[in-house]
Design a protein around this nucleic acid. Structure first.
Length: 425
RNA sequence: GGAGAGGUGGCCGAGUGGUUGAAGGCGCAGCACUGGAAAUGCUGUAUAGGGGCAACUCUAUCGAGGGUUCGAAUCCCUCUCUCUCCGCCA
C-alpha cells in the first residue's frame, strides 16, 4: 500500500512514479478524498474535544451533588446531546470516506524502483547474468516424457482424483521431490535462515496484507464456508506472521525459509504448459523471506537472490538472472530479479524463482514496523523462491537425462536422494 | 459439535459508570550512587492521526462492531479469538 499522506500532499509525484508501470493512474478522486477526510477529521476532533470538556463539567457538578441549578444542568445535557448528534454524523462520514480511500488505495500497485529498467512488458526485461552451459542435445526429451518413461508421476490419474493441472508423484519421483525440499531447507538453514512451516490456509486479511487481495481474488482457491483461502505462496503467511508487530531494529534482518504447498487457480492460462510439472494448481515451494531495516533492503535483495541462485549452482543447473522491467513487475514489488533455469527440451529458460524487494508496501498493508530513534516506521519485506520444487525437478530431469533414458542426479543431491541415477526398473 | 471461563500497555496484573491512556509490579532506557558492577534511589518508558519551528498540544484506541448514557475499560447486544472440560478425530 502506498502512503496516504504522500497522495494527499503530492498526487502528481505519485502518478508519475506509478506511470513507469506502463499505465496511467488517475489519482484526482483519491486525492480529493484524502483532503476531505483530513478536513472531516479536524472538525471531528474539535467537536469531540468540546464534548469531552462538557461531560467532565457535568460530572463535576454531579459529584458535588449540586441540585441548586437543575435548569442549567439540563441545559448542559441538551447541549451535550446536540454535540453528540453532530459527532455521530461526522463519524459516519469519516468512516465512509475511510472505506472509500482504502478501497482505492489497496488497488494501487507499488512504485517501481528507479533502478528497475524501463519497459512496458516482459520483452523489455534485462538479462543481467548467465551461469553454466545450456546444453542442446539431439533427441532431447521433455521432462514429462522422461517422467512417464521412468514412471515418476502420473497426471492422467491425477485429473481423475482432482482435475487437470494436478500431479501425483510416484516412487523415485516422490522421493526426488522430498529430497529436493530437504536439500533446499538444509542449505538455507546452514546460511542462518530460520525454518518455518506455515499454515496452508490463510484468511483474507493475510492475502490483503501481502497484496493478493482485493485485486487478484480469482487467482486463489477459496474455501466456501470459511474466510479461508488456499495459500498461493508462503509469502502470504510469512508476511502475516509478523502482522501488527513492531520489531526491534537490532533483531533485523529476520530471515525465514519456509516449505509450503502452493495453490493457484492459474486462471487465464488455459492451454499454457498443460503438460508436466511447470504449471500446476498445486506445487511445493521453498520460500526465502526477509524482514529488513529499510536502509539495508537493497543489499538484502542481492543477498536473498544469491542465496536462491546458490541452489541452482549446487544442483549444476544452468540459469540466468533477469532484471524485471518497470512494466512487468508484480503488484507488490518495486524491484524483481527472476531466476530462470535452462530447460533443454524447449530450448529456453523458464522462471524458477522470483526475488522481489517490496520495500514498505506489504509492511504498510500488514502494519509491520520497526523503531529508529524512537520513531516507528514500516520495515521492508523481501521474498523469493529458493526454489520452486516442481520446476526444479523438471530441470533436473531434462538437464540430467542420459542417452539410455536414465537421469543423472546432481552430486549435491545424492546424499538426500540416496542414489546417483534414476533409471527404469 | 456441547458446556463453561476469559481477552486491559513489551510482559504480569488492578480496575463494575465521572479529569482512567488507565494503579501496582516486572522488564527496558537515562541519571545518581560505585574503582567497576550488583543492590538501591530518582526520572522516563504505547500506537495512530491532526496542529505547532519547537517546548508542547488536540483526538482516537482497554479483542472487533453496535447500543444505553451528558459521560463506558466498567452496563446491554452481536461477532471474533484464546483457554478448560465433554464428544469426535490424525
Amino acid at each position: 500500500m502506498l502512503d496516504q499522506k504522500l497522495i494527499r500532499e503530492d498526487p502528481t509525484f505519485v502518478e508519475k512514479k506509478l506511470s513507469r508501470r506502463g499505465k496511467t493512474f488517475e489519482l484526482s478522486n483519491l486525492h480529493q478524498l484524502t483532503l476531505k477526510i483530513k478536513e472531516t477529521d479536524i472538525e471531528l476532533s474539535n467537536l469531540q474535544s468540546e464534548s469531552k470538556k462538557l461531560s467532565k463539567l457535568i460530572g463535576e457538578i454531579y459529584q458535588q451533588n449540586n441540585d441548586s441549578a437543575p435548569d442549567d444542568f439540563n441545559k448542559m445535557k441538551d447541549q451535550a446531546n446536540n454535540l453528540k448528534a453532530k459527532i455521530s454524523n461526522l463519524e459516519i462520514k469519516k468512516r465512509d470516506l475511510n472505506k472509500e480511500i482504502l478501497n482505492e488505495l489497496l488497488k494501487l500497485p507499488n512504485f517501481p524502483s528507479d533502478k528497475s529498467p524501463s519497459g512496458n512488458d516482459e520483452s523489455q526485461n534485462v538479462e543481467i547474468k548467465k551461469w553454466g552451459n545450456p546444453t542442446i542435445v539431439n533427441n532431447q526429451k521433455s521432462h514429462w516424457e522422461i517422467g512417464e518413461n521412468l514412471n515418476l508421476f502420473d497426471s492422467k490419474r491425477s485429473s481423475k482424483i482432482s482435475k487437470s493441472r494436478f500431479i501425483t508423484l510416484i516412487g523415485d519421483g516422490a522421493r526426488l521431490e522430498r529430497a529436493l525440499i530437504n536439500f533446499m531447507l538444509d542449505t538455507h538453514f546452514k546460511k542462518g535462515y530460520l525454518e518455518l512451516i506455515p499454515p496452508a490456509l490463510v484468511n483474507s486479511d493475510s492475502l490483503q496484507g501481502s497484496g493478493q487481495l482485493p485485486k487478484f481474488s480469482n487467482e486463489s482457491f477459496k474455501c466456501s464456508d470459511d474466510d479461508l483461502w488456499l495459500s498461493p505462496t508462503a509469502e502470504v503467511p510469512l508476511t502475516a506472521f509478523h502482522k501488527d508487530e513492531i520489531i526491534d531494529i537490532n533483531k533485523l534482518p529476520l530471515k525465514y525459509v519456509a516449505y509450503s504447498p502452493c495453490f493457484r487457480r492459474e486462471a487465464g492460462s488455459y492451454g499454457k504448459d498443460t503438460k508436466g510439472l511447470i504449471r500446476l494448481h498445486q506445487f511445493n515451494k521453498v520460500e526465502l523471506y526477509w524482514f529488513s531495516d529499510p536502509k539495508d533492503s537493497s543489499e538484502a535483495h542481492k543477498k536473498l537472490t544469491s542465496d536462491a541462485e546458490d541452489i541452482l549452482k549446487k544442483l549444476e543447473l544452468p540459469y540466468r538472472v533477469i532484471d524485471i522491467c518497470s512494466g512487468d513487475l508484480g503488484f507488490s514489488s518495486s524491484r524483481t530479479f527472476d531466476l530462470e533455469v535452462w530447460l533443454p527440451s524447449s530450448k529456453m529458460y523458464r522462471e524458477i524463482s522470483s526475488c522481489s524487494n517490496c520495500l514498505d508496501f506489504q509492511a504498510r498493508r500488514s502494519s509491520i514496523r520497526t523503531k529508529i530513534d524512537k520513531k516507528s516506521l514500516f520495515l521492508h519485506t523481501l521474498n523469493g523462491s529458493g526454489l520452486a520444487i516442481g520446476r526444479t525437478m523438471a530441470a533436473i530431469l531434462e538437464n540430467g537425462q542420459q542417452k539410455d533414458g536414465s537421469v543423472k542426479i546432481p552430486d549435491a543431491l545424492i546424499p538426500y536422494f540416496g542414489s546417483s541415477l534414476i533409471k527404469s526398473n
